[in-house]
Design a protein around this nucleic acid. Sequence first.
DNA 1: AGACTAGGAATTGTTCAACAATCCTGCAAG
DNA 2: CTTGCAGGATTGTTGAACAATTCCTAGTCT
Lengths: 249, 249
Amino acid sequence: MGTGETEDDGRQAWLRRVAADVARLDRSSSAERAADILRRSITEGALPPGAQLSEIELTEVLEISRNTLREAFRLLTHEGLLVYKLHRGVFVPELDEHDVVDLYRLRRVLEVDVVRALGERDPEVPASRLEPLLDDVEAAEAAALADRWPAAGTANMRFHEHLIGLADSARLNAITSQLLAELRLVFQVIATPRELHEPYIVRNRTLFELLEARKYEQAAADLHQYLLDSEAGILAAFRDKGLRGPART
Amino acid sequence: MGTGETEDDGRQAWLRRVAADVARLDRSSSAERAADILRRSITEGALPPGAQLSEIELTEVLEISRNTLREAFRLLTHEGLLVYKLHRGVFVPELDEHDVVDLYRLRRVLEVDVVRALGERDPEVPASRLEPLLDDVEAAEAAALADRWPAAGTANMRFHEHLIGLADSARLNAITSQLLAELRLVFQVIATPRELHEPYIVRNRTLFELLEARKYEQAAADLHQYLLDSEAGILAAFRDKGLRGPART
DNA sequence: AGACTAGGAATTGTTCAACAATCCTGCAAG
DNA sequence: CTTGCAGGATTGTTGAACAATTCCTAGTCT
């Protein structure tokens, strides 16, 4: 870095990076640590939808007090990964078809708009911004080759998370993170990961190539149909499996 | 830090009002009761952006334990009305121009889509669904006639909340509620309520009439420009004030 | 025998006070 | 002017205690 013009930009970028690092390390409160562990347990299926989380049991396992545990419960409740039933405890929510429709309605509006805005607002998107998307696409393809379908699903979702990230909106990122967390809950119920994720690996690559070629309008239209198809697939899977009586709560 | 004696007077008056509120409300849980009081204090400006909320002081004023107070803090944090800084306390967030742009970007996407979807999905919207919107329009008009501009602003925001409600999406309602709460924070910084809210009272009525006439496409276009104008007005007021909220955590 | 009700055990909801960890302030030294 | 170090103040966390509610069990009545 030699010239003075880019020095200020470099400094700004460095400050932002440091601030991000600090924020990440600060994040070490007991409640949030416990929430992290529980979040993984839920999204990975160790705590399936409908399961109850006993306070006494978890205070012993996580080695935290009831107050701190309940703080973690509140955090996850706000993310939609837990629900409170008064005087009965916290449960992993069981989402139904109506929730799927609701989630996909929001996904379509937000994601499609992000892609459209890329074309309208700033035609000169730095190519480096697309790198995380390519990483996700390749990660999904590799996982598919290895028959690791849950991992493929995770990579697919990270693709969409990074796509939203292109908008540089903190609030949009937070909303998306929550929507995808709830979607993972839906995937847990269906439990046929291959049929669920396989068709969208190649579509993600197509989408990436459209973005790389700066064909934003076509990418937006493509993504819209993509999400409609994905929603339809999930709803169909729900109706296949769904006629069974759910676990009694 | 201390700016003068008038601040102390204002603080005393605020303390007295809080004490009165404590005596009056007895029905809900202590944490929610405290959250109600604090929410009003924040949205009405008694606790301005940037203010720190001392735990010890508030436990004495609100007559609750620190744990209960922290529960109330969590509730308000989820609404976006407070932010935690680890080991430093809770603060009323200071939003800057970037936040305004972010908030309005989301508002435009979501609200315009709700109106469009009304036309596409279900041309037969029951007229009764629009009644809350009319109530809000009339409430804003009445408040404007009485020179009660904060009340007019509140009615305006409830109009938009009810508008979003037409989509019947629990998640959309939650997101909107939080966006508008943060917007109230922005209004507090500007502190010229009349100029801020007056132009939009008549525009809300226009919007309502377009919806009533089922001219959804025109309503959507109208709303889009409406939100662009509102954003521009707020940004202009920000630059006039020259008050900057630099901290971005 | 079956249904209903009363009572007790277990769990959650709420509050409190004390201890540990961290941050801020002021002051002295280089 | 900056650096390092106490001391004080504030926040983070814990464990216990008590109240409120639910669920299970046992007994009673028809």
